[in-house]
Structures are given as C-alpha cells and as structure tokens.
C-alpha cells in the first residue's frame, strides 16, 4: 500500500499537508506523533472513513478510491478498535464468527456451533493464540487475550491485506504485551498481512514494528527502520523538533 500527497482540511485548519507513506506486504509500520499531528485523520482516510481533499492511494500498485469503511474492507483493509470490537457476553467462538456464522441451511439459519467451535479452536491454534477455552465469554479473558481475539477476528478472512491497530498494547502488562507482539509479528510473517500501528508509546513501537514514521504538523518527517534507529534517537528527534516549533511560534 502506498499513499501520496494526501491532504485534508477541516474548514480553515489543514490537518494533513501532503502525507507520503508506504507499507510493504508483511511489514509492521509504526506511526507516532504528538496529539493533533494528524495521525488519527490519516488512519480514518486509510480505513475509508474520511476521504482526502487531494492525493492518491494505491493498493498493489493500483490506484483506489475508498468510499466507505465497507469499501475499504472489501479491499482487504481491516481495523481493530480499542474495546469496541468484541461483545463481552458472547463466547470467544461466537465473537470470532459474529455475523459470519456457520449455519445449517434453511431460512431460520440454525447455528452450527460444533463446527464453529472446532474451526475457532483450529484457527486460534494455527495463529498461536493460547486461550483456556473457546467457550468462555470474552469478558472472562484478560486484556491481552481480548485484544488477541479482536486481532484474530479482524484477520480471519484470507483476503485481509492490511490491518490497522490503534494502541494495541495500551494498558497491558509485559506478559500480555508479549502475546500481542508475537501474534502481530506472526501474522505479518506467515500470512503476509501488513500492519499499521498507531501508538504514543515509543517502547511499544520498537518492540512491535519493523519501521517507524513520525508525523508532525500533517507531514511525515521521519522514516526509518527500527533497527537503524534507537529509542534515544527517536526521542531526541521528537524533542528537538518540538523545541524548533516553539521557537518558530515565538519568533
């Protein structure tokens, strides 16, 4: 996936001023930036929730215009939202199959629970998500397990190419975070799903991502592979550009 020269204004405020960004198959890209830098607007454009004022998006080299979230989904772009993705009271397998249930014929669409249970178990085993049982309601799971189920559901379809994750490691302990980091990297590597991770926490970005982009004032100002940079360098970059901005503002 690639976006070129994306701009977006809300009234007189221009939030994105020509964003160029690319995402390779199976790559995990982290996007960081201060609040109001334009991260969430960028995400909304990539997921089809907003359309850009100008600029072009390409998928596999082909130009595409996303008209809606459904449209983006048809193109293989899925999103995992924090705490919005799952129904607490339903079992793990019902959540995985929600609105894509396996049924046994007829207009009443009887649930084939046995089949869904088995498929859910096999699928979670394949992507190495370890949970006690697919029968438990997701409210009984830990935060990390819930996030893993949400990611698993978003990537269940084979034609999913790009997954957007909004702070996937927020409020998680080290062990929990490890679960998600392994899952994300595993999905990227084995299934070739590209991941776009939005996070405020640079440590998480370094743990999770192959490459990092910094968004400042509606532009991508830094694009580096995580192994070519360091937490210190990234922090220094952010601080210095913040200082520069303050000086410009006061000048």
């Amino acid at each position: 996936m690639q976006v070129e020269g994306i701009t977006k204004s809300f009234g007189a405020v221009s939030v994105l001023r020509g964003v160029d960004l690319h995402l390779e198959p199976g790559e995990v890209l982290g996007v960081v930036g201060a609040n109001g830098a334009g991260k969430s607007t960028l995400v909304k454009i990539i997921t089809g929730y907003l359309s850009p004022d100008s600029g072009q998006m390409y998928l596999g080299g082909e130009p595409v215009h996303l008209r809606s979230v459904q449209d983006a989904r048809r193109h293989g772009i899925e999103t995992v939202f924090q705490d919005l993705a799952l129904v607490d009271q339903l079992s793990v397998y019902h959540n995985l199959f929600l609105n894509r249930e396996t049924t046994t014929g007829g207009r009443l669409r009887f649930l084939n629970n046995r089949r869904m249970r088995a498929d859910a178990r096999r699928y979670l085993h394949n992507i190495q998500v370890d949970i006690p049982s697919v029968d438990v309601p997701v409210e009984k799971l830990s935060g990390g397990q819930r996030q893993a189920i949400a990611v698993a559901r978003a990537t269940r379809r084979d034609d999913v190419k790009i997954l957007l994750l909004d702070e996937p490691l927020a409020a998680m302990g080290a062990k929990e975070a490890k679960l998600i980091i392994d899952l994300v990297q595993n999905l990227a590597r084995t299934r070739g799903v590209s991941m776009l991770v939005i996070d405020h926490n640079y440590t998480h970005i370094f743990e999770l991502c192959d490459r990092v982009n910094v968004v400042e004032q509606g532009r991508v100002t830094l694009d580096k592979r995580t192994k070519d940079t360091s937490l210190a360098e990234l922090t220094e970059f952010m601080v210095s550009s913040y200082r520069q901005q303050i000086e410009e503002d006061s000048a």
Partner: peptide, 27 residues
Amino acid sequence: TLFRRTTFGLHITAVGGNQTASAEAGV
C-alpha cells in the same frame, strides 16, 4: 430454540451486549 440456536438469537444477544461492535461486524 430461536434464541439459542439461530443466527437471529445470537444477534439479539450481540446487539444487547455491544451495539457498536455488532454494527461494526455488519449485524
């Protein structure tokens, strides 16, 4: 039977449990 064994019944619980997530899943 309707409530526990059919898609319709499952969706009733899903909508009541988390309307946003259900709509998000296309219910």
